[in-house]
């Protein structure tokens, strides 16, 4: 505080009371106010941080059924499984399914029928039919999802 002449002077200790008392009490109250305000501020912050958390939400279906006729032989279909995109392929070894999120930077992979492989359009990541990385930057294989065929239905998970 560079300009002491404009700062309001604490009460002059001219009264018969003990000279330190008013100023001392004021300083004490100032500290209390500071502490309480800080506590109040933090207290107000609590509901706000809680509010901004993702609200409780039902996890996406953990069992997804697709009509087998929806996926032609050699073709693929992307569906939502447990709230995230999953890719189902009708390949030479029957149906296979993977979490379609590329392990590199989160893009959604495509099934390339001609190459019989998964291809990530963002940075050219490639995965084989077992989900193993065969090219590009992805650090980890795709996560497989259990898949079963029951009559005319292909069932993911469950």
């Amino acid at each position: 505080m560079a300009t002491p002449d404009t700062v309001p002077q604490p009460a002059k200790p001219a009264r018969p009371k003990p000279p330190t008392r008013p100023g001392g009490r004021r300083r004490f109250l100032e500290r209390c106010l500071g502490a309480l305000s800080a506590a109040g501020f933090l207290g107000a912050l609590y509901p706000i941080t809680r509010y901004l958390e993702p609200p409780p939400e039902a996890e996406g279906a953990s069992r997804v059924e697709i009509a087998a006729s929806d996926i032609p032989f050699g073709g693929s279909k992307t569906v939502i499984y447990r709230g995230r995109p999953a890719i189902v392929v009708n390949g030479p070894n029957g149906f296979i399914a993977f979490n379609a999120v590329c392990t590199h930077l989160g893009c959604v992979v495509k099934w390339v029928e001609t190459g019989q492989e998964f291809f990530c359009p963002c940075h050219g990541g490639k995965f084989d039919q077992k989900g193993q990385v065969t090219g590009g930057p992805p650090p980890q294989p795709l996560v497989a999802i259990s898949v079963a065929q029951s009559g005319e239905k292909v069932i993911l998970g469950g």
Partner: peptide, 22 residues
Amino acid sequence: VAAGFLVILAGFIWLYRRTLSE
């Protein structure tokens, strides 16, 4: 609880204001 806190804070401000007039 929140209202009680605000009232306490107000009480401290009131006390503090009283020291200003001394």
